[in-house]
């Protein structure tokens, strides 16, 4: 069960319209390493995670990712809310505009729509945690790539916040990997899959 709090986890106040930047940032909504994929990944994986402490962590991080998805959508919305027909012709955003006007729709920067194939729920504790650690690094790289090209400090500020969260989540999934290893066969971590094989 979830309840909604009427606030962003980190404030977004963007005053300058920029459809080009919106096209970059949108990728962290519906792109391959975006916040929606992150949230759906963790909230899907938790059911078969055999250790309650780890499924609890997946629940809490998966919930925080929903708040990050909202921050990303707020950035894209504020970058395009005052879009003029002339600005809509900006290279890169023009095709999106034709299909969605100023609507917020999950797609990657290159236009590929959101797809569940962008994440995995493998049903194996070690495999899923390794995927989660990789996911945090991939999102961190995307934020690095955004920070390398976006100049508006009003956009950079919330992006830096989101990037910092990826590093913290990476550490937590690493710790979850340690907690999982503690419960497994130290001579051979691959001897069985605790989500499938019962003794």
């Amino acid at each position: 069960m979830w309840t909604y709090e009427q606030r962003l986890q980190y404030p977004v106040k963007i005053t300058k319209t920029c459809p080009k930047t919106a096209q970059y940032i949108m990728s962290q909504y519906g792109g391959p390493d975006g916040e929606m994929a992150a949230s759906m990944r963790y909230l899907s994986q938790r059911y078969s995670m055999p250790y309650k402490q780890v499924s609890g962590l997946l629940t809490d991080i998966g919930t925080e990712e929903l708040a990050h998805m909202e921050i990303i959508c707020a950035i894209v919305y504020q970058l395009t809310r005052n879009l003029t027909p002339e600005e809509a012709k900006t290279a890169g955003f023009d095709a999106y505009y034709i299909d969605h006007t100023k609507g917020i729709w999950p797609a990657a920067a290159a236009g590929v729509p959101f797809n569940a194939c962008e994440f995995q729920s493998k049903g194996d504790a070690l495999t899923d945690l390794a995927e989660d650690m990789a996911a945090e690094q991939k999102a961190r790289t995307t934020y690095d790539n955004i920070l390398r090209v976006v100049t508006d400090p009003e956009v950079r500020d919330p992006i830096k916040f989101l990037r910092a969260r990826e590093v913290v989540h990476f550490q937590r999934f690493g710790e979850a990997m340690e907690l999982t290893k503690d419960k497994m066969n130290r001579e051979n971590y691959y001897y069985f899959n605790p989500a499938m094989d019962r003794f």
Binding site: D144, L147, R148, K160, F161, A164, V167
Partner: peptide
């Protein structure tokens, strides 16, 4: 973006002339 100084590992690259 974190309460922990030891987990604060920022990225330093920024476009030229960008006010960070």
């Amino acid at each position: 973006g974190t309460i922990f100084p030891e987990l604060n590992k920022p990225f330093y690259m920024a476009p030229e002339g960008c006010n960070t």
